[in-house]
Write a protein that binds this DNA or RNA. Structure first.
Lengths: 244, 244
DNA sequence: CAGTGGTCTAGACCACTGG
DNA sequence: CAGTGGTCTAGACCACTGC
């Protein structure tokens, strides 16, 4: 066993090392990481210790175990849940009844971060950010209006064309084109009335109550990488949440 | 090791046995369960196997581990989070700035279950249920209006007086007085406008958008035991959610 | 069949709690 | 100090995958 640099359980240190490799891109989303036995040999610890480290990574959805095959870097694409962070489901409860969302990019431009956006993204006011506005519709009914802000530097080269041309979840584009993996997010939810522009885009009156969902998504080490403000219509869909 | 009755991992069987004892009330909320070594001896398995079973129970918040002291049956009282299933927090983010909620029982009566209530509680339409309406206020501002339905049989003897006189979370009353522990819940969230009665109780206009939160809470073995329909004001509070 | 993750064991030792 | 949960090891065997 290796010496103890700081004081924390060995498996936590192993977990941190694996996270480091993950962040450095040593293994890419969808790819397998080395087997437990290999990792145990590399880190000079027992397989059980590596196992416990990977257990935690799997519990945090950072990695996915598949018996008989290996352990894989989690990804927002290929995942049987199409949108991992979207909790709006049709009232029917049938997740597939909607089919794929029809996506429309309304706007996409670079600008300087306002104070609130900067704070959410751990930037300074005035730093370059990318702002995107889009609408998701199901069966022709506009249901979600999203404004999102991304830090300019990591997302250099992202344009409306890249967004429009991309098949699949936006987060999977972030992964493959910019190496940014969203790992965790927190949401603040309110009930609001839309302004005129919002109402028009969602094709509702401005007296229609909507769900306001403000999400901050983080990559590794809790670094915030996206601020997203969504307006959800809840006449045919609802926000579903599980409490443990 | 004991023989294998059905085919599932040993630790899953142990987990089921512990759950059974928990449900039977062998150990009550807040009390310690036997030590891992004792349980290992009782079930004739190794400590590691008991450990894995308890690990899962702890992950599901059914049990709480405390190093050096033991493993305890989780409870909705005594918990440092006062309301485990209430995700509405003040915008300040300071969970304590509100202080304890001021609770008012508006109504409490027994009646026959309507079809939707019966379905949610796995009862038959017309079965006896208890209906409660109450308001929670913070700093004198009514913020939450809740209607809740409980199956009549397990909650025989529950009256408005019992509710009014109880200090602490309602779920902890359910635990100590009726032996019903809520273990898991699911919520459906929408944005709505209140009707006249609702608006009056929350002291808002009927054009004020509110969060509608429908919760079904389950006890052991996923048995639904409560239907709760809440209306939340989100002008000073918001619903906070973590996504993994 | 070999290689992967999944289960189970037995035992050693550590860290924390309380009397 | 004894008793608890927490970590770590080494090794055996099982279950699943794909060649």
């Amino acid at each position: 066993m290796s010496p103890t640099p700081s004081f924390s359980p060995l498996y936590q240190q192993i977990k941190a090392l694996i996270l480091q490799s993950l962040q450095a891109g040593e293994w890419k989303p969808g790819e397998p990481i080395p087997s437990e036995i290999e990792l145990a040999a590399r880190f000079r610890v027992s397989q059980g210790t590596v196992r416990k480290a990977i257990d935690e990574l799997a519990a945090e959805n950072i990695v996915v175990r598949r018996q008989g095959k290996g352990t894989f870097v989690a990804t927002h694409a290929e995942q049987h849940v199409q949108y991992r962070f979207l909790k709006l489901v049709p009232d029917s409860g049938d997740l597939d009844s909607d089919g794929p969302a029809e996506r429309t990019i309304v706007d996409c431009k670079r600008l300087r971060a306002a104070a609130d956006v900067a704070r959410a993204l751990s930037l300074r006011t005035g730093d370059a950010v990318l702002q995107v506005r889009r609408v998701l519709a199901y069966h022709g009914v506009p249901t979600i209006l999203e404004d999102l802000w991304l830090p300019g530097t990591p997302f250099k080269g992202l344009t409306a064309e890249r967004l429009t041309g991309w098949r699949g979840p936006m987060y999977s584009l972030f992964e493959t084109e910019f190496g940014v993996r969203m790992v965790r997010a927190e949401e603040k939810i309110r009930a609001v009335l839309p302004d005129t522009a919002q109402a028009a885009l969602l094709q509702v009156t401005n007296a229609t109550p909507l769900l306001s969902v403000e999400r901050v998504a983080h990559t590794y080490h809790d670094t915030p990488m996206e601020l997203r403000r969504g307006l959800y219509r809840t006449d045919t869909h609802h926000y579903r949440n599980e409490l443990g």
